[in-house]
């Protein structure tokens, strides 16, 4: 697992930044399927507080995870500015509720550092790193881990089982060196 993270941190990529409370988080753009506004969510009985329920995405039943709840931020009411980011992990499609979505950043290998040792607030096992860009500090989310943990599949082995397969890290680049 650490080896994977090192590789990810070392290669350039694009990240969608999300707002959550006062902080910014980043998601690998390749995982983002679409961004939706407020949608009706049907609660699931006897589930963790951060699993808000399921929603109807054009006929598919998609679970929705509240990132505020997941990271221990106070819950806010849904309104028309609430955003749900639909991501794919393996064969799963999952929605993540965030406060807002802002821009897409191009991150080079020098922009990303390993996640720091935080206090209790954010579960750093859910981060792949931290990106610094001018004054901004963007915490990069490990979407796979986040989703698999939320649906109860948890373990890295589940990555293969979920159909992610061995070649997720394949990259082809041509750069002037």
């Amino acid at each position: 697992m650490p080896l994977e993270k090192a590789t990810e941190a070392a290669t350039a990529r694009q990240v969608l930044t999300l707002g959550l409370g006062d902080e910014e988080y980043g998601l690998d753009i390749l995982r983002v399927r679409e961004i939706k506004g407020y949608s009706v969510i049907t609660p699931i009985p006897n589930s963790p507080a951060y699993v808000k329920g399921v929603m109807n995405l054009r006929g598919t039943v998609v679970p929705v995870v509240g990132l505020r709840e997941r990271f221990g931020l106070p819950t806010v009411a849904y309104d028309k500015f609430t955003v749900i980011v639909i991501v794919t992990v393996g064969a799963r499609v999952v929605g993540l509720v965030v406060d807002a979505v802002s821009d897409v950043l191009d991150l080079g290998p020098n922009d990303v550092e390993p996640p720091p040792e935080f206090g209790a607030r954010v579960d750093t096992s859910m981060l792949t790193g931290v990106a610094k860009r001018e004054e901004r500090l963007v915490m990069l989310l490990d979407v796979e881990r986040l989703v698999l943990d939320a649906v109860g599949a948890g373990l890295p082995e589940a990555l293969t089982a979920a159909g992610v397969g061995q070649t997720t890290n394949s990259r082809l680049e041509a750069t002037a060196s």
């Binding site: 009985p45 399921v54 039943v61």
Partner: peptide, 18 residues
Amino acid sequence: KTLETNYRRIDGMMGATI
């Protein structure tokens, strides 16, 4: 609609519908 594709089996539920 099955819940297991994207989420998991929920005890007491056999699926969902729109």
